[in-house]
Write a protein that binds this DNA or RNA. Structure first.
Lengths: 229, 229
DNA sequence: TAGATTGTTAATCGATTAACAATC
DNA sequence: TAGATTGTTAATCGATTAACAATC
């Protein structure tokens, strides 16, 4: 498996292929062409064929790709043919939503542990989880052998939590805190910040927002601290 | 303003610059070099200078960029010098988290309306919002002149909701539903699906997940329907 | 002045697309 | 067979980087 020297932009598309293939399978398709897959994703057929060809020859001329087999291949390539246990730090409104989210399990992930620093939250149940004291983060992560972490804390806490996760053996972090984390280059980091996405859209939408009132966009502090995401 | 023919990849970085500049301002910096900004974002200094030069000459040799002025410029370029009203559809766990999120307002956004189809939710208060019947979506969006929508419904409902939003005048959609939306090319669409990010990381992490038990990754339905995100 | 840093150019690097022989 | 579609090549296209004159 030439898992090295695969362009990052190709890797970033593979999960989209997998997701679309799963929907196709649920619809009853047993084979799918690069053209049809591309249509469903807004990606050109040539792009998809080129990407997949980096990992092997999965298709058949004249008929396309066998859906089930390609799903298996992509799950193997992405290492989601096994389930990854994750740790969540930050059980605010967002953390609670993540704890209740049913979409992780069947796509290869499971939240195993949830932490917060708030004494009023520690020990309480949220869904199937008991919120643990973040003071015990390192010990708990090590004993559960956790490799993936999710951060849903205020931005002000995210860097420290990330460092402690890495100390405890975490190799990949998905952060909802709106701040860039400074971490060793061998640690995988991904970010989710809805405002970033919104601002990418408003660039193209023109000046149609509403006039800002004084306390919404104060000049002295035009961006705010973005806690509790 | 040459707001056209700006590469999309440049546009996608501008919100990151703005966010980092705001933190710098909160730390008391009045000027910042492209090198320092790049260090904080994991982006090369040349990249930042090149990107910004597409919009004007904002810096000064020897000293760098004036933080406050560059923030103003980026907010103008991204059209977040005004506040954008948004509509949210889907008041499940994720929708509630979005309704409680304090990070929108000071970065240029405000949820104005929230909708759901569940009769037990309609009319109930969530934070400062009263959940409205999604049957009234078009009428309410038009009368409030909403241009931005957020979708936090099950994947199975997302396409229909998106089409109805567009019908009602929405020009940009941020979707948390794990499905690609088929919409007119002039509609801006951005997606947030945490599993996509997680799978991008596990590609690099090697085969360290836990063996899947039968009911976690069933062969017959290896991906599941991903509702309620 | 000396040191630092921008804006811009040219070179390098990488990704996407078009086209088509192979073949199912 | 005829039609369809892959895998791959070569060409095009676009983005990043390095370097440096200009200048604060």
């Amino acid at each position: 498996m030439p898992t090295r020297d695969i362009p990052a932009v190709v890797v970033s598309r593979l999960p989209l292929y997998l997701r679309a293939l799963c929907y196709a399978q649920q619809e009853g398709l047993t084979t799918i062409s690069s053209q049809e897959l591309g249509r469903r994703l807004g990606i050109t057929a040539a792009q998809i064929r080129k990407d997949l060809s980096l990992f092997g020859e999965f298709g058949k001329q004249g008929t396309g790709y066998p859906v089930a087999a390609l799903i298996r291949q992509l799950r193997r390539i992405l290492h989601v043919d096994h389930v990854w246990d994750m740790a969540l730090v930050g059980v605010g409104a967002l953390g609670r939503a993540l704890l209740h989210y049913q979409g992780f399990a069947r796509r290869g992930f499971r939240i195993a542990l949830a932490f917060d620093m708030d004494p009023t939250k520690i020990g309480r149940r949220v869904g199937a989880f008991v919120v643990q004291d973040v003071a015990r983060l390192e010990a708990a992560l090590r004993s559960a052998d956790i490799r993936l972490g999710m951060i849903a804390t205020p931005a002000s806490a995210a860097q420290e939590i990330a460092e402690r996760m890495v100390q405890a053996g975490v190799r990949g972090i998905l952060s909802y805190a709106p701040i860039h984390l400074q971490l060793p280059p061998d640690i995988q980091v991904e970010y989710i910040d809805p405002v970033i996405h919104l601002q990418r859209m408003t660039f193209y939408l023109g000046a149609q927002g509403r006039p800002a009132s004084a306390d919404e966009l104060p000049g002295a502090q035009p961006c705010g601290h973005h806690d509790e995401g």
